[in-house]
Write a protein that binds this DNA or RNA. Structure first.
Lengths: 200, 200
DNA sequence: CGCATAGTTGACTACGCTCAACCCTGGTGG
DNA sequence: CCACCAGGGTTGAGCGTAGTCAACTATGCG
């Protein structure tokens, strides 16, 4: 799902592309900002959230290196999410008109772009599916199993704090903690630090 | 968000396109079927679901007339969802190779297609956002307010059974029923049959 | 008329949330 | 080098909300 094809642009188009560095916690753009750019993450991790009420935030996506964000910019005038760097990060900035012209001119890039969008749809559907599993330990197990890309793999390294994962899954940190402990005593998983071993 | 551009295809390409009729409750394809076609709904309503456990199903999307489904077919070999007609429906069938070649050859169609995909991403994000609202009547109100496309609009006509809506929102029919009654007694909405009037 | 289904209501249960306390780690500054 | 602090993770007790199950009504359809 990497869009590195876009990086191999014809020379003249490259001039309009810049990079931007973000410190951990820094905001790239906020919902209701004017949507002018599309971004490709080259380093770090950026989360997309939306503020519902004053205190409640909803996290939609964790965008990692070689993944993109703000596709919405291409077709809408304002962003609908807020993008915040979870750790120090770097992004490539594509002005929307530039990207649109690229997508019109280079079918291969366009097809790649569509594939990336479809993958994002799949990912969101999975997150929605998770929410239909009410019981905490079942939801967590489903999530963990999904994190291993290959069925024969059994270890998952959690590179984010449990409390962030809890938030993604729609639980509190306490509930995640208890769910993991239950999975451990039920011998469904084993834990060492932030490494989880799935017992098949 | 209609893909009717695809309907205005150059003459030779049209020959490969067929339509298919579905009775209410009929299945168009099931998850793990070989993904060969992309579909455009012309009549009726089709829901995309995924079976989690033996009894639990998760509903992702309600696809209505002039909307499309099974974009996944373009980039994967098997469907990841099951598509079931909620009412009598009709779809246009596009073989995946045909659609891919169209998307390569006609940039305008490709851009429309991307826009449609981005809209689907937005819609899924909204559904995810809903799930982060725990209190039933608040989630229902948020949902209802989203159904009115224009802020000045105040009436919503529910064209699907409450129990289906309940399932979409991740609640039981009983909970939705009680939530609506609470919203009514709180004077946040008024109800007449399947029409909801939002009090601003 | 009889049946199936949607919607509603009630009583009870179960699960996650809340809030508080505690442990542990890593980082900071004296 | 150690004392202190902040934050993540864990544990416990009690609460609140949606789920469950059952019963009832209303509607539509055969």
């Amino acid at each position: 799902m990497d869009l590195t094809d876009i990086l191999r642009l014809p020379e003249p188009l490259r001039n309009n592309i810049t990079t931007q560095n973000l410190a951990a916690g820094e905001t790239l753009f906020t919902q209701e900002d004017e949507a002018t750019n599309f971004y490709l993450v080259t380093l770090g991790r950026i989360k997309l959230v939306r503020y519902i009420n004053e205190d409640r935030v909803s996290t939609f996506e964790i965008v990692r290196a070689s993944q993109s964000l703000a596709e919405i910019a291409l077709f809408e005038d304002i962003y609908t999410c807020t993008a915040i760097a979870e750790v120090d990060s770097e992004v490539i900035v594509y002005p929307k008109e530039l990207l649109l012209s690229i997508l019109r001119s280079y079918p291969d890039v366009a097809i790649d772009f569509m594939e990336m969008l479809v993958k994002k749809i799949q990912s969101l559907k999975f997150r929605l599916e998770l929410r239909d599993i009410r019981i905490a330990h079942e939801r967590v197990l489903h999530y963990l199993r999904h994190l291993v890309n290959f069925p024969e793999e059994t270890t998952v390294v959690l590179d984010r704090p449990l409390k962030d994962i809890a938030n993604d899954l729609g639980f509190t940190p306490e509930t995640i903690s208890r769910a993991l402990i239950k999975l451990e005593t039920d011998a469904a998983i084993a834990r060492q630090e932030n490494i989880i071993i799935l017992q098949k």
